[in-house]
Each structure stands twice: as structure tokens, then as C-alpha cells.
Write a protein that binds this DNA or RNA. Sequence first.
DNA 1: TTGAAAGCGCTAACAG
DNA 2: CTGTTAGCGCTTTCAA
Lengths: 321, 321
Amino acid sequence: MTVSRYLRAPALVAPETARRIVSALRQTGYTPNKQAGMLASGKSSIVAAIIPNIASSIFAETVQGLSDALQSHGLELLLASTNYSLEREEEQIRAVLGWSPAGLVVTGRDHSLAALALMKQAKQAGTPVLEIWDLDPSDAEFAQIGFSHAAVGAMMAEHLLRCGHRELVYVDSGVREDFRAHERGQAFVAAARAGGARANVHQAQSVEPMEAGRLAFKALQDKGLPKGIAFANDHLAAGAFLQATAQGLRLPRDVAILGFGDFPISRQLGGGLCTVSVERYDIGSKCAQLLIDMQAALKAGRFIQSAHAAVQPELVHRSTT
Amino acid sequence: MTVSRYLRAPALVAPETARRIVSALRQTGYTPNKQAGMLASGKSSIVAAIIPNIASSIFAETVQGLSDALQSHGLELLLASTNYSLEREEEQIRAVLGWSPAGLVVTGRDHSLAALALMKQAKQAGTPVLEIWDLDPSDAEFAQIGFSHAAVGAMMAEHLLRCGHRELVYVDSGVREDFRAHERGQAFVAAARAGGARANVHQAQSVEPMEAGRLAFKALQDKGLPKGIAFANDHLAAGAFLQATAQGLRLPRDVAILGFGDFPISRQLGGGLCTVSVERYDIGSKCAQLLIDMQAALKAGRFIQSAHAAVQPELVHRSTT
DNA sequence: TTGAAAGCGCTAACAG
DNA sequence: CTGTTAGCGCTTTCAA
């Protein structure tokens, strides 16, 4: 009992006793059993995060930001991926909830009905539930950290319109359940048409993204190259850029290319790929911060209203538009 | 009790009882408490993995492979990153061991003394401990999944020698505790000199990798460009490639460039970057498989000897050498 | 400042 | 096939 006390609050133990405890701890190589601690105290140090894909550049940095911030608060990260399947998302949510985590982080606002029910139940039980990578202030059920994809789609279209282009295409990632990419595309087309341009969506093939960008570019050429092309992400755009320049095309004279994400490669190709920057790492660290704030609020007995944190996507002007 | 039994082995419960259980489960939205289960049964479904960096292309895919394979076996992934610090690695190992995980996955063979002690203790306690991304058959303390970095370094040097180059440089990543990159570099230099070439190591700056590659290339130009340059990874090589071609240099005529990792970008630049491919995803999935095998062996009472799984790095011939 | 008692939610072992 | 008993390793509460 005294050892347990020492471990949580060394000051409450007599110096001499503390000394003996420390030496015993070292000799035995004792490691406290966290499940027992959690069971007894009802407090969890696990935060569960569920994302579509760990390997993708998009989410990896967000997870890094989340992980770093959690670590500095003594929290641990239980990570699961869904491969962009709502069904797998539901399973993962169900699985991680069994750990009664200190927080549940999911990606985006689209979930299966059952998943939604689980999330609400967790929230009711006092577990902070946060959605990352999207933001819709009208949706107040869960905390959100992200930005409006519709606004970004519109921003992309408006930029190309401002550059004088009137024939536009949005190249989508070709992943059926990447709802955020679709949303950018829909808003892109709507804003482009509102601005008097012809616009539509082209679905990329679901292969390695740069290669998909190349292929999409060729496919568009066959249909008659538009004046401006926006892409669901910078890897697609980079592939298209490489294909275009390999053919001797001049950008933006022959065709304007606009990416999304401001991945490192966009700074390196030619005079730079024009793109929209998003603070991916910040989404993760802000998520952790918000989670901790919500926990504190809850402990203080205050009712958590839905909290939102925004990151601000910005157009990065470079040479391709 | 009967509910608990139903959850683990539905067949052991009468059909009528099962029906009532299912309906009660649904009505209450019951989720079994996993820490309690774990505490009572002594069985864990958590696998802890500790890697230098989540965001880096190198490890993200390995984690994805690990995660996918674990998921399909009902195991869950507790992930921590060290930012290439052995000190943080030690802290993380200590932290995750408190969960008495079903397995502990660490990166590489270099650890602090205390970390090593913890790993040995875990192993003794029956927890499979596996090292990924490196392989040294003479080191039989823990299971390993990876390859010999010394062999890769030598392979890289030998390839450039075979191409006829006699002035070689290895550009290291500039990350102090990336021991595997250093090991490739040392072996590269040794093999190059053994082959009669001049060779040494250049440390890249610790900035964004492609940019670091660009800067390293310029720095080497100032010192008199060598005939062949090997890089610690493809992002460095890609940066150097872009810098070289922007200057109008012809590869491999003016300088040969050789990367490591076979990242997607290497397929896309110019005629393709010559590189060494590593099945990053496989390292993760093989790790999970080995872990499960070790667990099974342990349960069957068989003593686990150190198990090793190799992935085979291969030279990918492309246009830059 | 330390220790004793009780219990967190589950499962193993056994009894009915 | 179902239920009872005991206990996993810790923390909470209260007494000494």
C-alpha cells in the first residue's frame, strides 16, 4: 500500500521509507500493472485513434502530432486503421471502447449508424469523442478539429477562375469512402460553375497516387485537356506535373495544375506546385490539447459542450497556376 | 457468468439463453471491460510497438503492415515514437510494459542499457520481444525481422563500382541516432575502398529530406562533385536528382545517383531513380506473424529460441547509375 | 505516516 | 448447461 502511495505521490511517504521503496523497486524491477490500476481507479491513460490509413502522407503527420502531444501528457496511443471502410471503422470503435479510453478520436464526420451510436454512448459515458480532419460548425454532436472541405474546394475553384481558366476539372482520389475528397470536389465544381466555367470531376484510378496522377492526366488529354486541373492531393498533382513536363508542356501556359496538402514534394518540383497547405501535424496536436481540456472540464464537473478547433488551409502560390 | 461465457464461446450456451443474452446485450449497449478481462485471465490483446517516427515514409508502411496483420488476429496496437532518441525509447518501453502486452516490438538493435534490461526482463516473463528493421544472425537475444544494413551498404558500393565509378560519397541522413543509416554508410565506404575507390561519408543537414538532398548535392559540388553518390534514402536522392537535372546535368554521365528504399517517387522522376528496394510493409506483417507464432509456441510450452525473419533488399536498376 | 479492508469487472475452476 | 466462489493487482477509504 505504501509503495502504491509512493508511486503516485512520493511526498506523502517518509524519506526513510521512500529510500527503502526505491531500492526494493530497483532490485525487483517492479512494473506496476496498469490494467489493475485502471480497473481500481477508473482512470484511463489510453487514447484511441482511428484513421483511414497510417501509411498515407495525409494522416501520418497528424498521428505524429497526436502521439507527441499525448506523450508529453503521459497518455498513450492505441491506433487502428480502417482502410477507408466505414464498416471496419465501426468494428474498431467497438474494439477500442472496451478499453474505456480517456478519449476517442475518429476521422471525419461520416460514420455508420452503429458507429454513431457507439460514439454517442461513449460521449454520454463521459469519454471525450473527437472528429479530426473535418469541421462543420452546424454539427455540434462531437468535438471537431479540422477545416471545411467545401470551403477548400471553393477556394481551389476560385483561384483557377481568378487565373482566367474557364474549363476546369477536379481529379478525385478514386477512393470510394474518402468523403472529404469528394466534398472538396463537389464544392469545386459548384463554385467553378457559379463562376461561369465548365467543370466536372474525374475519378483517378485507385493505384499508387503519383502514378494515378500521371494516368489521370493522360486520360484527360484523350478527352481534350482542360485549362485548369485541381487534384485531391499533391501526389496526384505531382504525377500529373511530371507527365506534363515530360511531354514538354509548359505550365501554367498549356495547363494549370493545383494540388492539395502542400506535401514536401510540391516545393521541389520545377518552380513549385501550386497547392493548398494544411497544418497536418497541428490537427494532431490540437486534437490532443482539446481532448485534455475536455477531460479537465469534465473532471471539474462542467458540462462539455461541443468544442471546435479550426486549422486554416491556405492557398500556396507557386509556378503551376 | 453465463453472459461472459457466451461472449467467449457462444456454443457452450443453450440457444434460448443465447437469444435472451443477445437481446439484453443490444438493449443495454454493453461493452465488456477489457482491463478487467485481462486482469482476470492474464491474457493481453495489446501489442506495443516503438518506432523512431510515425510520419516518416520508412516506418509508416511497416506500421501499416503490422496494424493490418494484428487486426486480423484480434490484436490491438499501442504505438509510441521516439524521434530517434534512445532515451525516449527507454521511457516508452517502460511505459508500455505496464500493460503486460502480448508482444513488444522495438526498432533496431541499438538500445540503452536500461532499455535492454527491460526487454530481457519482458522476454523472461514470457513476452515475445521483437526487433524490426535490422537483422544480425549472430545476435540471438531477441527475435528480429529485417535485413543486414551492412550488406546493403556494400551492395550499394559494389553497384557503383561495377558501373565504373571510383570516386564515391555516401550521403547520410544527418540524424545522429539513425544507426541503421550509419551502418549502411560505413559498409559502403569500406566496400568502396576495398574495391579501389576513394570514398567517404557526407552528413546531410537535418532538414526536410528532399531539401536536404538538394543542399547536400550543392555542398558536394563545392568540394568537387564525386562520380557516384549513394544516399541514406530516396528522398535525399530525389532532392539531389532534382537539383542536378535543374542544372542541366545528365545522369549518370555527369554523376551517378543511388537511393535507398524504393519510395514511390523514385519510379516517377525522369527515367527512374536507381535504388535499393525494401519490403517495408512486409517487415510489419512478418513481425506480426512471428509474434503470433512465438505466442503459440509459448502457450504450447515450447521454449522460444530466437526467431529471425529476413526481407531481401534488392537493387532496382533505373536510369541514374 | 502507515496499514487494513473492500471492491473495481471480469474469468477460472468447480459444483450443481 | 448454468451458477457459485474466489481472486487477478491495484486504489479508495478509513482507522490506527
